[in-house]
Amino acid sequence: IRCIGVSNRDFVEGMSGGTWVDVVLEHGGCVTVMAQDKPTVDIELVTTTVSNMAEVRSYCYEASISDMASDSRCPTQGEAYLDKQSDTQYVCKRTLVDRGWGNGCGLFGKGSLVTCAKFTCSKKMTGKSIQPENLEYRIMLSVHGSQHSGMIVNDTGYETDENRAKVEVTPNSPRAEATLGGFGSLGLDCEPRTGLDFSDLYYLTMNNKHWLVHKEWFHDIPLPWHAGADTGTPHWNNKEALVEFKDAHAKRQTVVVLGSQEGAVHTALAGALEAEMDGAKGKLFSGHLKCRLKMDKLRLKGVSYSLCTAAFTFTKVPAETLHGTVTVEVQYAGTDGPCKIPVQMAVDMQTLTPVGRLITANPVITESTENSKMMLELDPPFGDSYIVIGVGDKKITHHWHRSGSTIGKAFEATVRGAKRMAVLGDTAWDFGSVGGVFNSLGKGIHQIFGAAFKSLFGGMSWFSQILIGTLLVWLGLNTKNGSISLTCLALGGVMIFLSTAVSA
């Protein structure tokens, strides 16, 4: 259960009878995928790494000078000259100064003066180019299975845990398959586009800190620079940016070097996208990844198990997540596992009318040892309800109150669905055939309105939902006002479609 501690969480529900669903994975976010007769899966884009970055340009932001020398000439005696002028490691300046009897010249006039100092770069920052084909995306998957609280967001041991898996995709191999043991396998067909235009970005490294910066900004930095990788004795261009020549006297000129420019660069980098280094690879934390999940090989585990009949206890007080759902960790005293956990939410304890829904599909106890633990997640209705676990006299209950409203949740879900469709863009549509167009249209309606429909009408039977949709269509056909007619027709059509397409 990876997503319960992530604030940016998206719930995606598969269409009834569908074998695939489109998701948008982004750094700092987590996606929970639910479908009829399929286990619930949490998917998170953990890291995006980039390798084989080529150094484009380096800037010196802290330097020192040494070996200063000057040469001067009297008027009419030609130009002052130093051998160091031809050495690229030196920074030199030529000027004219007033000369006369007082400073060793027989004539009054302008004399030539040249001053040089050896330039040494102490600290530099480097910009590297990123090729999209060198990106690698690491995705962690977790099935809502027989897990306890100690396994949440624990990325170790996934090789031997059938509840978890790690997959890596690249532009050259965008397809992967996550093996989930008894739950089958989940196929991923990803489109490795981060949403960032790397043709316009460089990877900047300064003092063990890293950013993504725009090329134009990078090339306009007014500091000494050299092109390409460091060859040991780089040729620094624009050395004068960190060196200041003071007022010249008759035979000498003082040279000083400016202080470190790291603070000024940090100020200019305010708002830039931060990154990290992992050995020789860069780690990015921006952008998104679009994936199509193929769920035809994914299956529920323990459908044929019998119900657990022994007593359950709450190991922890049920807690609310950031998303309005409830996490419950229970301990089973029996030894008759594997068995299914009898769990439901009810409005009252007399009729036990089921409300809400299970995020953890078909929760089971897989071990036959005593005191096995299991964590599950529920989506309670707004208002008061009861969490009921167990059967008969051994069942345990917990009162729950959820604040908020169904309308607010439906609106929030619609906005999130619209954002998801905007990110998917043209990849969500198939114009290759008439059937493809209608299929894409259905998927689009489901992406945007599916979660809201589930919130508003999830407790009704599909037949009642179709009746309401048919009534809206009838009202649309018999209303003389054009805008009201079109609105009723659209709402009725969407409702009829979703009542037959969205899983219960």
Rank of each mutant, 00 (worst) to 15 (best):
H446R: 10
Q85F: 02
A250S: 12
K316S: 00
Q85P: 00
T369W: 14
N362P: 04
F183K: 10
T126C: 12
T327H: 06
G435F: 05
N103A: 02
L378M: 10
C488I: 15
D426A: 05
R252D: 06
Q131I: 03
A248C: 04
V502R: 04
H399V: 05
L188W: 09
G232P: 05
R416A: 06
I65F: 04
H148L: 10
A311W: 15
F312V: 12
S122A: 15
V415S: 03
F314V: 01
S372V: 00
G302Y: 04
A504W: 13
L289M: 13
D220S: 02
L273N: 09
C105M: 11
T76P: 01
E216L: 02
R292W: 01
V326C: 08
T427Q: 04
T325L: 03
K239T: 06
K454V: 13
S173E: 05
S70Y: 07
P192V: 04
A69T: 13
D379W: 04
G18S: 00
G150P: 01
G482N: 13
E13M: 09
H210L: 04
K128E: 13
E168Q: 03
Q447K: 00
S405T: 15
L45T: 06
C291K: 06
N208K: 12
A333Q: 01
V434W: 14
W20V: 03
L467Y: 06
I365Q: 05
F411W: 10
E191W: 10
D67S: 13
T32I: 07
S149D: 13
A63C: 09
T321M: 10
S122H: 13
K294R: 07
T406S: 13
G392Y: 08
C339R: 07
G28L: 00
K281Q: 13
D83K: 01
W236A: 01
R299C: 05
T487S: 09
K123V: 01
D22W: 08
S483A: 09
L441Y: 12
A270Q: 14
Y386R: 00
P174A: 06
G425M: 10
K290A: 05
T366W: 01
L273I: 12
S64N: 15
A176C: 12
G5A: 04
Y137L: 01
G459C: 05
L467V: 15
V473Y: 04
T231A: 10
V97S: 06
S461F: 12
A501M: 13
K373A: 13
N52Q: 15
N371Q: 02
D426V: 08
W101P: 02
R416M: 11
S72C: 09
G417K: 09
M125V: 11
T335P: 13
I396C: 12
K301I: 11
N238D: 15
Y158G: 12
R57K: 13
C30E: 08
V31D: 07
V169N: 07
R357H: 06
T88R: 09
A268C: 10
G392P: 13
Q331A: 09
V143T: 03
M140F: 07
V265H: 12
G459Q: 15
I221V: 14
V415Q: 11
L201Q: 13
M206L: 14
E162A: 15
V347T: 11
C92G: 08
S146A: 01
G29Q: 00
G127T: 01
G459S: 09
M421G: 02
N207D: 14
V494K: 11
T414P: 02
R94V: 12
W101T: 02
E244S: 12
C291H: 04
P380G: 01
A178M: 10
N208E: 02
E367P: 00
G145Q: 09
A451M: 13
M34S: 08
G109H: 08
I359T: 12
A63H: 08
S455F: 12
P174V: 06
V31F: 08
A270I: 12
H226D: 08
H226E: 02
A227E: 01
W429A: 02
S149V: 14
D197H: 09
G444N: 13
T369A: 08
G459V: 02
L96H: 04
Q85C: 12
P192L: 02
I466T: 11
A490H: 10
L82H: 14
V56N: 07
R73P: 03
T487M: 12
V256L: 00
H210E: 06
P381I: 03
H446M: 11
S503H: 04
V41D: 05
T360W: 09
C116I: 05
Y203F: 11
P342K: 08
L300Q: 06
C308M: 12
A346M: 15
R420K: 13
D22K: 06
L242F: 08
T47A: 15
D220P: 03
I365M: 14
I341N: 13
T487P: 12
K419N: 00
G383W: 01
L307V: 13
A54G: 03
G78L: 01
L498D: 12
T353Q: 14
D348K: 03
V256A: 04
N362G: 06
V317L: 03
Q77M: 13
L196P: 12
T397R: 06
F314I: 10
E13G: 12
N208H: 03
G102Q: 04
G482E: 03
L486S: 01
A35K: 04
K409V: 00
D430A: 06
L472D: 02
R57C: 04
A418E: 06
V434P: 13
V256R: 00
V143W: 07
G493N: 02
L196Q: 01
G109E: 06
C291Q: 05
D348R: 00
D200S: 14
C339P: 05
A275I: 02
A280L: 13
F198I: 11
G482V: 05
D430Y: 05
G482T: 04
E26D: 10
N439T: 09
A69Q: 15
M34K: 09
E136D: 14
F431H: 03
V347I: 13
P222W: 11
D426F: 12
N154S: 14
K301L: 05
R2S: 10
E262F: 09
E276K: 09
K340S: 01
R99Y: 11
S122K: 01
G184L: 02
L456M: 15
A275L: 00
A333W: 03
K215H: 13
F463A: 05
S455G: 13
G435L: 00
V169K: 08
I389P: 10
C308W: 06
V494E: 11
L141D: 10
C105E: 06
S461A: 04
V355G: 13
T427N: 04
S146T: 13
H148P: 10
M277D: 12
K38H: 07
A176S: 01
T360E: 05
V50D: 05
V50Y: 03
L25H: 06
E191Y: 06
L223G: 05
A504Y: 13
G337T: 12
L186V: 04
L456E: 10
M140Y: 14
S372T: 06
Y59R: 02
H226M: 04
T479N: 09
I130G: 04
K124E: 12
A501R: 01
K340T: 03
V437P: 00
V434I: 14
D384N: 15
P222K: 09
G390Q: 05
G28R: 04
G450F: 10
G150T: 13
A501Q: 09
S185L: 13
P174N: 08
N134A: 04
T126M: 10
K409D: 02
K340L: 01
K110C: 07
N207W: 03
A451Q: 00
H266E: 13
M349K: 03
T321Y: 09
M140R: 04
H219W: 14
A117G: 15
